[in-house]
Design a protein around this nucleic acid. Structure first.
Length: 337
DNA sequence: AACTCGGGGCT
DNA sequence: AGCCCAGAGTT
């Protein structure tokens, strides 16, 4: 859970997850839907699938690997995670480098290399060299904690730093220049058309995404990439009694900036199996109360909320027979007030 | 070596 | 509006 995610964000998920899946065996025996439901909202859902697969490996062998080499063989366990478990749980004297340690080393030793690329190798070699034989887990956690609380990316608290006198960047007045972080690609804009279709008795149509790619294995209102014309291809798969543009949702990922047109519709017939859109592997109808038990992305929740909001407060110009555009979000509310 | 994969909190 | 987070797997 801590891969690329802050401790404070993880904490409540961690508590719930361990209450629900207390042991590797309990996790291994759980259906994937329940694992993704417990992960719902945390992001990088491949981590959940990998952890699930890893639990199954451990359950099959009836044994947890107890050193770095064995841990590295588990799916989802890379160099950082293997080092963290080996040193903290099993007191193996191995180093580790996460974003915090990379920054701390870059400053203490004035490392010039790009820490997004080749610089990580230097940092890992240093970590391996410096880790003490006794309490290696405490050492590693102290390095990470120093980076998270004192040696922060911006405005580090050098006056409170216990190793400021050993810091080369500090001595050379280059704290703000280190670490060197190479350019990162900007998210690419992408348009999406989403369909929130309900039966007359209020159940909502969701589709489960295929097992690889974006939001793999999660349920969501079916959608298609592209502009309005792409939407027609999606809408045509279903028997719709009515349809209207309910709002627009934006969602930013590391590599994409999604703008989603949300279309609300009423189903006149139950969807046939042949209606399954590309990128999905299943289709089903759900009561509102059942959504909590599903793996659903934050984006999908935004889309559902936009459709609900449009239905609840149609606005002065609403005509149920006419398609309409409606803005949601801070800017629209500011304009209305 | 570059790209894919979420979401959030802080500046 | 950026930046980056207790990264791993795939191409």
């Amino acid at each position: 859970m801590l891969q690329q995610t802050r401790v404070d964000t993880v904490m409540p998920y961690f508590e719930r997850f361990l209450a629900r899946f207390p042991t590797p065996l309990a996790l291994a025996e759980a259906p994937e839907d329940q694992v993704l439901a417990a992960w719902s909202g945390l992001g990088y859902y491949r981590r959940a699938r990998m952890l699930h697969a890893g639990a199954r490996v451990v359950a099959d062998r009836a044994e947890m690997p107890r050193d770095r080499e064995g841990l590295l063989e588990l799916p989802g366990v890379g160099r950082y995670t293997a080092g963290a478990i080996a040193s903290i749980a099993f007191e193996e004297p191995v180093g580790l480098v996460d974003g915090n340690v990379a920054r701390v080393f870059a400053r203490i030793f004035a490392l010039e290399d790009d820490m997004r690329r080749a610089g990580m190798k230097r940092a890992e070699a240093l970590a391996e060299e410096l880790v003490p034989a006794k309490k290696p887990g405490d050492w590693n956690q102290a390095l990470m904690e120093l980076g998270a609380t004192i040696c922060t990316p911006r405005a580090p608290a050098c006056e409170r730093c216990p190793v400021a006198s050993s810091c080369r960047a500090r001595a050379e007045g280059r704290v703000d220049e280190l670490p060197v972080m190479g350019e990162k690609a900007k998210p690419k804009p992408q348009r999406v058309q989403a369909l929130v279709a309900r039966t007359k008795d209020g159940r909502v149509l969701l589709a489960r995404r295929q097992s690889s790619g974006l939001f793999a294995g999660l349920w969501e209102p079916p959608s298609i990439d592209g502009d309005e014309s792409a939407g027609d291809e999606l809408f045509g798969r279903f028997a719709l009694a009515s349809r209207a543009l309910a709002g627009r949702v934006t969602h930013v990922l590391s590599h994409r900036r999604l703008t989603v047109d949300v279309h609300a519709a009423v189903l006149s017939k139950r969807p046939a199996g042949s209606a399954l859109p590309a990128a999905y592997e299943a289709l089903d109808l759900f009561d509102e109360a059942a959504l909590d038990g599903l793996g659903i992305s934050k984006l999908a929740r935004k889309i559902l909320a936009a459709a609900r909001e449009a239905a609840a407060s149609p606005g002065p110009l609403f005509d149920p027979k006419m398609p309409r555009a409606r803005e949601t979000g801070r800017r629209a509310r500011a304009r209305q007030s």
